[in-house]
């Protein structure tokens, strides 16, 4: 039985719903913030997740980060030594999708050699009539960057836990792989 701890960067353009997703996840679906409150710098949320089919668990330290460019300098400092990445865009906003490349690059710049397991999340799927980013396109981009893809609606409480569960699983897998590596050294 082991309890892992991971620093998870939650990033993406302003108003895509990062804080809404994080709040939903933390409150187990009890709390959806309807009115927009912009995040300044980083809000930290901590949530404990069991890893299925094991006795192990992962404590996720979610760094819900500001999407507004204004705060980017603060972010670089707070993002040091990330373990996981949750990259979010709004399926009704083309630019929020194309900016994912920029966000990915900025977070990966924080790494010194090591890999960064991550997921891409297309949020606001409840706004069906206004969708401009098709799932297949997002899926393809995610795949080509080594990310798993999820679609969510924080508003309708759709699938909001899945990306975080996936991240916990990826981190746990990485730990297992490292243990094997450590065993192989001597």
């Amino acid at each position: 039985m082991v309890k892992l701890a991971a620093k998870c960067i939650l990033a993406g353009d302003a108003t895509v719903g990062k804080s809404a997703l994080a709040q939903m996840f933390r409150s187990d679906g009890a709390h959806f913030q309807k009115n927009y409150t912009l995040t300044t710098g980083v809000d930290l949320l901590v949530k404990h997740l069991a890893v299925p089919d094991t006795n192990d668990s992962v404590e996720l330290f979610i760094f819900d980060s500001a999407g507004k460019e204004l705060f980017s300098e603060v972010l670089e400092k707070l993002w040091e030594h990330p373990n996981l990445l949750c990259l979010v865009f709004d399926v009704t906003n083309e630019q929020s999708f194309s900016n994912c490349a920029k966000w990915l690059e900025r977070v990966r710049a924080q790494l010194q050699g090591s890999s960064l397991p991550g997921v891409l999340v297309g949020n606001k799927t409840d706004l069906t009539g206004r969708r401009v980013v098709e799932a297949s396109r997002a899926q393809e981009w995610a795949g080509s960057h080594g990310l798993e893809y999820f679609e969510t609606s924080a508003k309708e409480m759709e699938n909001f836990e899945a990306p975080f569960r996936c991240l916990a699983k990826l981190f746990h897998q990485l730990y297992r792989e490292r243990l094997e590596l450590f065993h192989s050294l001597v």
């Binding site: 039985m1 082991v2 701890a5 991971a6 404590e59 373990n83 730990y175 490292r178």
Partner: peptide
């Protein structure tokens, strides 16, 4: 950090094959 399979006692057991593993952030 404590994974019961890789406890910190492994650090001073005189054996390089056994180890203590960290489980999270630094």
């Amino acid at each position: 950090s404590s994974d019961e399979k890789y406890p910190p006692e492994n650090i001073i057991d005189g054996n390089s094959a056994t180890f203590w593993a960290t489980t999270g952030m630094f």
